[in-house]
Amino acid sequence: MHIVDGALSGEVVIVGSALAAAGTAYGLKSLDMDKIPQAGVLSAVFFVASLVHVPIGFSSVHLIMNGLAGLVLGWAAFPTLLVALLLQAVFFGFGGLTVLGINALNIALPAVIIGILCRRGVRSQNAKIAAIWGGVAGSLAIAFTTLFVALSLALSGEEFIAAAKLVFVAHIPVMVIEGLLCASAVYLMNKVKPELFGALTVTAVQKVDA
């Protein structure tokens, strides 16, 4: 999923970096003290998940787990995933430093969108319904990410349909696996620590009380 250095045109890289910076700034604002440990853990999950890794053409396929990050963190997924991406680039040579921004955008923006779309679902009192929403979130996050990657490649001169097809098809197994993983994670959290997905509302209530 990481696009490597030199695969994209300069404009795409610059615009992507600018948008990623904006998202990160906004995310840092929403990252209050209660959320830092969650952000750390999800950053670590993302960092390690990417080691299950199969190279395909310009990009590469591996577990991503950005859906879960989006569900738990919302906009704070931006700084969280950016940190993990930076470490992956430095330690493992995945992606690269110049394309860090666009990679962060391609992975964190779907996470944020999924968070907005599915958070209501995973808050369900019924753990099974929550798990189904979790599964949808996990798979959909990958689907959106493939779409964004294809879009970045298309804006750099590749034909969109072809690129999108290639990336999407390559990631179908990842969608299945992440859907299952995310569903089981949400099921567990719903049983054990349901307030994880409601962290925002809980703090909002606390602030009102204070």
Binding site: L31, D32, M33, I36, P37, A39, G40, S43, A44, F47, V48, L51, V83, A84, L87, Q88, F91, F92, G93
Partner: peptide, 27 residues
């Protein structure tokens, strides 16, 4: 090319450290 345990632990250590810095500023 090998991604050995040390690299992984190193990365996790950085994440822990960054979370710590985050805590510092939040506090």
């Amino acid at each position: 090319e090998q991604n050995d345990l040390q690299k992984i632990l190193g990365g996790l250590g950085y994440i822990l450290g960054i979370a710590g810095i985050g805590f510092y500023f939040a506090a």
